[in-house]
Design a binder for these strands. Sequence first.
DNA 1: TAATCCGTAACTGAAACAGTTACAGAACGA
DNA 2: TCGTTCTGTAACTGTTTCAGTTACGGATTA
Lengths: 139, 139
Amino acid sequence: MRSDSRLSRMLHVLVHMQLLGGTETSDTISLMLKTNPVVVRRTMAKLKQHGIVSSEGGPGGGWRLLHAPEDLTVLEVHRALTDASIFTLALSADHPACPVERAVNARLSHAMNRAEAVLAEEFGAMTLADIAREFQSAG
Amino acid sequence: MRSDSRLSRMLHVLVHMQLLGGTETSDTISLMLKTNPVVVRRTMAKLKQHGIVSSEGGPGGGWRLLHAPEDLTVLEVHRALTDASIFTLALSADHPACPVERAVNARLSHAMNRAEAVLAEEFGAMTLADIAREFQSAG
DNA sequence: TAATCCGTAACTGAAACAGTTACAGAACGA
DNA sequence: TCGTTCTGTAACTGTTTCAGTTACGGATTA
């Protein structure tokens, strides 16, 4: 199944940005992530849309964290990056009128909603500062 | 994000098979799912490997449910169909030695494990008979 | 022996993130 | 003002995985 590592990678970057303080360019970040500046800009653009970072052009420009690390939750970053379902599991939509399909989908939806709520609860209670703390205590 | 509707589709089929009682051919099932017999065989083969259904060749052959609907949980079907993660979210593995990446991934793993446990708990408590009951009461 | 099935190989198609090249445009600085 | 440094995008290609399709082989039944 195709996967999406943007959340993990962007959190990694944001923690480093917090530790370093100032602004970082797409080039610098792309080196940190062993990837391409365009990929970085594409992903950071979503964080910018959600007010998590700002960008400035020209020399001395780059990306800057707009939130205090205690106030930025993983949930906010996650929501900024992905609109789609967090699950690879999908419901079938071949027979909208079939009561069996509807019963199956209703049951699966219920379970998936509960699991998603748990994930949102965990992500909502996890800030950038928490991650930085764990990193520092782990050495 | 690429999605996988096999669980939903196969549960749909299994409920129908339970209601109909006997065996169903790949052709019949493919018509039910508006798809191709080969796709059905490919997916049913995984259920067969896990002892959920059996298959017989020749005229009068086809697929047969091996479990009583009260004993077959959604979790068993799910496990038979997918080995990969249920999440589209993936952890980055670019810097195994970087303590920041490790801290990020440890936190994300914890949250994902909790959510996955909730889903497994829900799926484990949900049998084919439960779905059939809901379908019948819903009309 | 012929019809009916499953079992598979070998493709193509579709969708989405990742990667890359190539510019346009803005901002700074000498 | 002019060159350098940035972001912002468009337009591709690569990769992966499920879905769809064609084409067989092989087993079973009647």
